[in-house]
Design a protein around this nucleic acid. Structure first.
Length: 322
DNA sequence: CTCGATCCCTGGACGC
DNA sequence: TGCGTCCAGGGATCGA
């Protein structure tokens, strides 16, 4: 039996205190991945990968390529691209074959993925599917119960190929590009925010939060939005993501930020997961509907339902994008 | 091309 | 206590 299969279960490693929604809090979207990247950057660069052990591999593009390509390389950097995490690897030491080129390990955490170094002596947590032994007595371990994540090894060319289809950086996208990417589409705004080909890094939580803040109903069509609305949404999204990164970066939960509000209050979602609770702006009860196959939380008063949806009426035919 | 529906997978919540 | 059922979601894939 594979050593990783018999999972050495740590005595209830994490106190999963709290309800489901607090657990959702940890779902890796852009800010969570960014925080992880910053943490790994402190400790990984310069380390050499000595060996690789894999458990279940059905979420990996090409497990053999990882086993073949990673050992012997040095970790040169850690980067984020959307929700992807990139381990930049050196060319293979003194390699004359195909390993002379730079390469990267591409990691997506999916819903439940975690990536962290750990002393090799510690038993692996349950659902650990990849262990990279480092030259300092630690192992970089990937754990993912649901295996919705992804792991792959690429050299530069193929890596660019993988990342090329991804959309704009929501922290960086210009007013014009954002409007262009949204207002030319007839899909619902919620679907567009979640589409990694439109924007890279936004997930369900921050999509709902930014729509709440911009006062836009999740089922509106991209092409229905005014320029003023897309600009409001772009700013809301950027500010929420930036704040989330700041908050995640400070491990202390109850600090007071520049706005003078307690961190605990700040970090609470305004819409996501708050079905039946009063809107922070108008006290109307937050509702939950399905949009683009995902739960979507919104305030029915602040984010008015589009007319075509509210009545028995259906979607008008003339929402032609332009 | 565009968009929506379906499926993958597991653990936790909930009902009986 | 224990069992079954439902549900969460990112993204690939398929069909309309």
């Amino acid at each position: 039996m594979h050593p990783l299969r018999e999972e050495g279960v740590l005595p209830t490693a994490r106190s999963t205190c709290g309800n489901f929604l607090e657990a959702c809090d940890k779902m890796p979207e852009l800010p969570e991945v960014e925080t992880l990247v910053r943490g790994l950057r402190e400790t990984l660069p310069g380390r050499r990968i000595l060996s690789v052990r894999l458990g279940k591999t059905d979420f990996m593009d090409d497990p053999a390529a990882i086993e073949r390509g990673a050992p012997g390389r040095r970790i040169e950097g850690v980067e984020r691209y959307g929700k992807f995490l990139l381990l930049r690897l050196s060319p293979m030491h003194g390699a004359a074959n195909g390993n002379a080129a730079r390469a990267s390990l591409l990691v997506h955490l999916g819903m439940t993925g975690r990536l962290a170094p750990s002393p090799s002596a510690l038993p692996c947590e349950k659902h650990t599917h990849a262990c990279f032994a480092l030259d300092d007595g630690r192992e970089l371990r990937y754990t993912d119960a649901r295996r919705f994540g992804r792991m792959a090894f690429f050299e530069e060319g193929p890596l660019r190929e993988q990342l090329r289809p991804l959309g704009a950086d929501p922290l960086d996208v210009s007013e014009e590009e954002f409007a262009q990417r949204i207002r030319t589409r007839r899909a619902r705004i919620k679907a567009l925010l979640l589409d990694q080909h439109v924007l890279r890094g936004v997930g369900n939580i921050y999509a709902d939060e930014s729509l709440w803040r911009a006062k836009i109903h999740p089922a509106r069509h991209g092409a229905q939005l005014t320029h003023r609305q897309t600009e409001s949404l772009r700013r809301a999204l950027r500010e929420i993501l930036e704040r989330a990164i700041r908050l995640r970066g400070s491990s202390i939960s109850d600090f007071v930020d520049a706005a003078g509000e307690p961190g605990e209050y700040q970090r609470r979602h305004r819409a996501y997961g708050r079905e039946g609770k009063p809107c922070y702006r108008c006290r109307t009860l937050i509702r939950r509907i399905q949009v683009a196959g995902r739960s979507s939380y919104y305030c029915p008063r602040c984010q008015p339902t589009p007319r075509w949806l509210s009545g028995q009426g259906r979607q008008p035919k003339n929402v032609t994008p332009h």
